[in-house]
Design a binder for these strands. Structure first.
Length: 452
DNA sequence: ACGCAGACTTGGAATAATATTA
DNA sequence: TAATATTATTCCAAGTCTGCGT
C-alpha cells in the first residue's frame, strides 16, 4: 500500500523545513518502528506537508503519520453519573493535572512542554509496543486507566479493524465444525463441557456477550458466563425466558425456543441452586475463551457477534438486490442492515432504542414540579408524538426507528458494503457518512466480487 | 489455575450541526 | 425565519481480552 494511503508522508527534515513546521501541533512518537512525527492534520498543515514532499531532494529522515488524535482532552471535573444502579453514582470526579499524566513519545524526542507553569508530567515513557499517546488513572476507579489514542480514521486503527474482520471471516471456515461440536456436547457427561457447550450456543445464537466477573463497586450487570439462575427461566416444553441487565444496564428480555437438549441442560444447571447463584458455576470467560481458542486460532466470544452480523448482511444483500434505481437499492441496503441487526444483535442494539435502563433513584424523587396545565400539555404533546411514531413505524416499515449507524461502526465488515456498492453502482456516500468514510478508508479499494 | 494490571473495543447519551417544516 | 426534526459528532462509561507474576 502506498504510504499516502496509509496516512503516512515522508518528508525531508532538513534545516530549511524545520522552521516552517507548526511545531505547536507536532508530537514525536515512534509507532510502527519508525521515528515519526504525529500531526493533527489541518488543511494548512497538509498543504505544508505537500510542499515539503515536492521540494525535498535529499534523504528522508522522518515519517509523518498524518492522522488525527482521538480524544486529546482530559475529562473535566464533574459528578460521576455511571449507568444503571451504579454504586459510585454522584461521586466527585476530580480534576486531572499534568502530574497525573504519563506520556508516550519517541526515544530522544523533545518532551512536550508542560502547559501549567511549575508543574511537570508524571512520567515520560518510550514504549513503541502500545498505541496510546498518554494515560492517567481514572479518578473514579484509580485501578483503571484513561487513554489518549489515535482517531478511528487513523491507519493504525484501520489496520486492527481489518484484522478484526479477517478473524471473523476465518470463523466461517470453522463454524460448521464448532456448531457440530457444541451440539454434541449438550449431552456430555462432563458438566464443564456441557456448560461450555450451552454457553457457546447462547453466544452464537443470541449474540450474548462473554460476561466477565465484575467488582462489587460496579453496577450489577451480567453477560453469558455470569448469568444467574433467576435470569433464565425454562418454560416447558423448550422455551427459555431471559431477563437480565446487560452492558450499560440495558435490560435484555427474550423468549427463545431452543433445542431440547439445551433446555434440559439449563434445567439441570439450575437444580439445587437459588436465584442469585451462577447458572454456569463451572465457567468464566477465560475458561470459555481458552476452549474457543482450541477450536480456532484467536477465537474468542466477541468474534461471534462480528461474524454473525457481517455474514447476515452479506447474505441479505446478495439475496435481496435485484434491480431498480439507486434509491431502491439504498432501501434494500437499509433493509438488509436492519434485518442484520435484528437477526444477529437484536439483543440490545435494537432493543435499546425502546426501553431505557432503570435509573430509579433510591427515593424515586420526582422531577421538578410542573404546574398541572403544563403537565397536561406535555402529556397531550407526548401522546401525539407517540401516535405519529406508531404511524411512521407502520408506513416506513420501521426503517427509521432502528439506528443503523451503531452496528455499521462496529460489527459489519465495511468491505461487504463497499463491494456491494461497486457491483450495483451505488455511490458509497449514500451509505457511509463522512466519518464512516474516513474510518473505513482501508476498505475502499476492495474488489467488487468480495464476499464476507 | 488464578488474580490482577493493562490496553484496547464497544456503545449509549449528550450535544452540535444540519435539514425540514410551519 | 423560527421552531422542530433528523443526523452527525463528541464524550466517556463499560465492556472484552491478554499477559504476567505467583
Amino acid at each position: 500500500m502506498a504510504l499516502r494511503e496509509m496516512g503516512l508522508m515522508e518528508i525531508n527534515w532538513s534545516k530549511g523545513c524545520r522552521a516552517k513546521l507548526p511545531l505547536s501541533r507536532v508530537r514525536f512518537t515512534h509507532h510502527l518502528d519508525h521515528p515519526m512525527v504525529l500531526w493533527q492534520v489541518t488543511n494548512t498543515s497538509r498543504a505544508l506537508v505537500d510542499q515539503f514532499t515536492r521540494k525535498s531532494k535529499s534523504l528522508y529522515t522522518f515519517l509523518i503519520l498524518c492522522c488525527r488524535v482521538g480524544n486529546f482532552r482530559v475529562e473535566p471535573p464533574a459528578l460521576f453519573r455511571g449507568r444503571g444502579e451504579h454504586p459510585k453514582m454522584g461521586k466527585l470526579k476530580k480534576r486531572i493535572w499534568p502530574s497525573d499524566i504519563t506520556i508516550n513519545i519517541g526515544k530522544g524526542a523533545p518532551i512536550p512542554e508542560c502547559p501549567i507553569p511549575g508543574q511537570r508530567w508524571k512520567e515520560i515513557r518510550h514504549d513503541n509496543t502500545v498505541t496510546w499517546l498518554a494515560f492517567w488513572n481514572d479518578p473514579i476507579n484509580p485501578k483503571e486507566f484513561k487513554y489518549v489514542f489515535l482517531a478511528a480514521s487513523s491507519s493504525l486503527k484501520g489496520q486492527s479493524d481489518k484484522e478484526k474482520y479477517e478473524k471473523a471471516r476465518l470463523l466461517k471456515d470453522y463454524i460448521q465444525g464448532i456448531r457440530a461440536a457444541y451440539t454434541k456436547d449438550f449431552a456430555s457427561k462432563d458438566v464443564t463441557k456441557r456448560q461450555i457447550a450451552v454457553a457457546t450456543y447462547l453466544i452464537d445464537k443470541l449474540a450474548l456477550r462473554a460476561g466477565n466477573e465484575k467488582d462489587d463497586d460496579e453496577a450489577d450487570t451480567v453477560g453469558c458466563c455470569t448469568l444467574k439462575v433467576e435470569n433464565v427461566e425454562p418454560l416447558p416444553p423448550n422455551i427459555l425466558k431471559f431477563d437480565f441487565l446487560g452492558k450499560d444496564s440495558i435490560r435484555y428480555q427474550n423468549e427463545v425456543e431452543v433445542e431440547p437438549p439445551v433446555f434440559k441442560a439449563i434445567q439441570q444447571f439450575r437444580t439445587g441452586k437459588s436465584g442469585g447463584d451462577d447458572l454456569f458455576d463451572e465457567l468464566d470467560t477465560s475458561k470459555l475463551n481458552a476452549h474457543l481458542k482450541e477450536l480456532m486460532p484467536g477465537l474468542t466470544a466477541k468474534v461471534f457477534r462480528t461474524y454473525n452480523a457481517s455474514i447476515t448482511l452479506d447474505e441479505m444483500l446478495s439475496r435481496e438486490t435485484k434491480g431498480g434505481d439507486v434509491a431502491e437499492k439504498v432501501v434494500v441496503y437499509q433493509h438488509a442492515n436492519k434485518e442484520g441487526i435484528l437477526n444477529g444483535l437484536k439483543t440490545d442494539l435494537a432493543r435499546s432504542k425502546k426501553g431505557k435502563p432503570p435509573l430509579k433513584g433510591a427515593d424515586g424523587k420526582p422531577r421538578k414540579n410542573l404546574n398541572p396545565d403544563a403537565l397536561e400539555r406535555k402529556i397531550v404533546q407526548t401522546t401525539a408524538k407517540v401516535e405519529k411514531m406508531e404511524r411512521d413505524k407502520e408506513t416506513k416499515e420501521d426503517l427509521k426507528t432502528v439506528a443503523l449507524g451503531t452496528s455499521k461502526i462496529n460489527y459489519l465488515d465495511p468491505r461487504i458494503t463497499v463491494a456491494w456498492c461497486k457491483r450495483h453502482e451505488v455511490p458509497i456516500e449514500k451509505i457511509f457518512n463522512k466519518s464512516l468514510l474516513a474510518k473505513f478508508t482501508w476498505a475502499m479499494d476492495i474488489d467488487p466480487s468480495f464476499r464476507f
